[in-house]
Amino acid sequence: MKVNITVRDNKVVIKLEGSLYVEDALLLRTKALSYFQAGHNNFLIDLSQVDYIDSSGLGALVALQKRALEHHGALQLHGLTGVVQELFELTRLNKIFEIV
């Protein structure tokens, strides 16, 4: 999985590309946490180029959202399609994330 991180208007934009497997979930958590430690609390995760996310990836996004809320920030998701969208719907995670 490719990860591209930029900061725009004080928002951390994480663009992911490929399939998000268990080893990628760990990497995503680690990278995102370093931005929390640097004082950021608003995140946008772009999943438009992601063709699959496993349950550990879903768990990583839930953990990051909880962390953002604890820091009085927010985590938004963008670009859910295909199986990725289906997995969010069947686990009802589409109800707890702000999808833009």
């Binding site: 496993d54 349950s55 069947l90 009802r92 109800k95 707890i96």
Partner: peptide
């Protein structure tokens, strides 16, 4: 994993999926 009490858990979705 879709129960209200479980939806914010970091894990526990694999078997349901």
């Amino acid at each position: 994993c879709t129960a209200t009490s479980e939806v914010y858990n970091d894990s526990g979705r694999g078997i349901d999926i």
